[in-house]
Simulated assay, not measured.
Amino acid sequence: MGKRIQRVDREIIPSKPIFKKLALGWTGAILFATLSPTGGISLFEISIPHFDKVVHFGLFFVYALWVGLAIKPQSRYIYGFCIGSSLAILTEWLQSYVPGRQADIYDGLADVAGTIVGLFVVILLHPNSNKKQSEKPKC
């Protein structure tokens, strides 16, 4: 007689195609910047010691934001960390084969740190994104 209605939990923060596109585009920017033989975009020389680590951190920080918002809330943090860390390791390894570039463990650590902090910011901006709506307190 009565149809059985299945309850569908909706995502609190939907996985929007724009974030997927941004993450994919940013992946291309990271690959270009880290695997270009001349060192990526080099518009001017900056003489601040270890500034390249700040750039690595920043690239992966932004990448983690886009990836974290592109993935469904239930799995965004573990997958975001795995994807970001894998890209960091891959780019550093590939740099050892690019003329004029070299792999640097500290660049890789800056990449992973940027990934972790970026995902942490996603957590701060959307603290309840891992909880289902049914777990929210009712007013």
Results as ranks from 00 to 15, higher is better:
Val112Ser: 04
Gly2Thr: 07
Glu11Gln: 12
Tyr63Ala: 04
Ile83Val: 14
Ala23Phe: 08
Arg7Trp: 05
Ile41Gln: 04
Ile48Ala: 12
Leu65Tyr: 02
Gly58Glu: 08
Thr91Trp: 06
Leu24Arg: 06
Leu65Ser: 03
Lys16Gly: 03
Phe120Lys: 10
Thr91Phe: 02
Pro49Cys: 04
Arg7Thr: 12
Arg4Val: 11
Phe57Ile: 08
Pro37Arg: 09
Gly118Val: 00
Pro127Val: 12
Asp111Gly: 07
Ile116Arg: 03
Asp104Tyr: 05
Cys139Lys: 13
Met1Lys: 05
Gly84Val: 04
Gln74Ala: 14
Lys3Arg: 11
Gly58Phe: 10
Leu109Trp: 08
Phe120Gln: 07
His50Ser: 02
Thr34Cys: 15
Lys20His: 13
Gly28Met: 06
Leu87Asn: 12
Thr115Ile: 01
Ala64Val: 09
Tyr106Phe: 13
Val117Met: 11
Asn128Met: 07
Leu124Met: 04
Trp93Gly: 00
Trp26Thr: 05
Leu94Pro: 10
Gln133Ser: 09
Leu124Ala: 13
Val121Gln: 01
Val8Asp: 13
Val8Met: 07
Cys82Trp: 12
Phe32Met: 12
Thr34Asn: 05
Val62Leu: 15
Phe81Met: 14
Phe51Gly: 00
Ala70Val: 07
Phe61His: 15
Ile41Asn: 12
Asp52Asn: 14
